[in-house]
């Protein structure tokens, strides 16, 4: 098999083994600026993306995701190969650490303080996150917020931002600096393309950020203006707990970390229909 591609994401090293040219190309493009550990490094996650078994290599071709020799997911159609790598890697990273409480949230930093945008898929956090990352905010993560119970900070895990459907063109129009990978059509989420993380955010891979503000975004199509509100701490705690991947694994330490987060950080809600006013509001609301 062709050479593996190893790169450092946040605290961990990932090595991707794949013979699929489109995946190699896209990964090389999106992870261009990431540190490349040599063969003597410890590898945390060995991932392989392989063609389907037997006839499914050619006939209605499939792709398989392997972690530690196991296939945690059913194969997908070959057209979804690259997004499959990113989704599968998310799962691996979220479920194999006890050092961080992993929150389903985008996290960005400005002036040393982190903006946390938690939210289920469809809340519009990826679009906001991409736009902020292209407007001077430092991207820590678009999907997996690493909250350390030890220091109460968010630790960077910058990975390509997954954009869906209309958001792809919105971001392309938003900034000429947006470096987007190829669009994959007909995935179970529709069309998906990934935005390369700006080099500055990759360079700060080791720099955590203290929480500054939590904003639960919700995209409401056609909404003129913004609807913002304050979220009680107890409610914020529950909603964050719902977005945590490994709260049960961390147990009490995870719960304490969440409590400390909502105790020290104001939580807001933001409904928006238009990107520009939402961004301006987030700038203003940032401590």
């Amino acid at each position: 098999m062709a050479d593996a591609l190893a790169f450092r994401v946040g605290p961990w090293t990932v090595r991707l083994h794949t013979p699929l040219p489109e995946v190699r190309r896209t990964a090389a493009f999106l992870y261009r600026d990431y540190p490349r550990p040599g063969p003597e490094a410890f590898v945390d996650y060995e991932i392989a993306l392989l063609p389907g078994r037997g006839g499914r290599r050619w006939w209605r071709p499939q792709v398989r995701f392997l972690f530690e020799g196991q296939e945690p997911f059913a194969p997908l159609t070959r057209a979804q190969a690259y997004p499959f790598f990113e989704w599968g890697l998310n799962w691996c990273l979220a479920h194999h650490t006890a050092d961080y409480l992993v929150l389903h949230a985008a996290v960005l930093e400005r002036d040393g303080r982190a903006l946390v945008l938690p939210g289920p898929p469809g809340a519009g956090k990826s679009t906001l996150c991409a736009a902020l990352a292209l407007s001077g905010w430092r991207l820590l993560t678009d999907e997996l917020g690493l909250l350390s119970p030890a220091d109460g900070c968010f630790h960077p895990l910058p990975r390509p931002v997954s954009l869906k459907n209309a958001a792809i063109d919105v971001i392309r129009r938003f900034s000429s600096a947006a470096a987007l990978g190829p669009s994959c059509h007909d995935t179970h989420k529709g069309t998906v393309a990934h935005l390369r993380v700006p080099a500055g955010a990759v360079a700060a891979l080791e720099r955590p950020a203290r929480p500054g503000r939590i904003v639960f975004p919700r995209f409401v199509p056609g909404l003129a203006g913004l609807r913002a509100g304050r979220l009680e701490r107890a409610r914020a705690l529950v909603q964050l707990a719902e977005q945590a991947f490994n709260l049960a694994l961390l147990g009490e330490a995870g719960f304490e970390a969440l409590c400390a987060l909502v105790d020290g950080t104001e939580a807001l809600t933001l409904e928006y229909g238009d990107l520009a006013p939402a961004l301006a509001w987030l700038e203003r609301a940032h401590p």
């Binding site: 605290p11 961990w12 090293t13 410890f42 945390d44 006890a98 694994l249 147990g251």
Partner: peptide
């Protein structure tokens, strides 16, 4: 041990306790 190994062992210990 290398930091990565310690991270993996910490995870295994937490997973086992759980």
């Amino acid at each position: 041990l290398p930091e990565g190994a310690r991270h993996a062992l910490r995870w295994a210990r937490a997973a086992k306790a759980r």
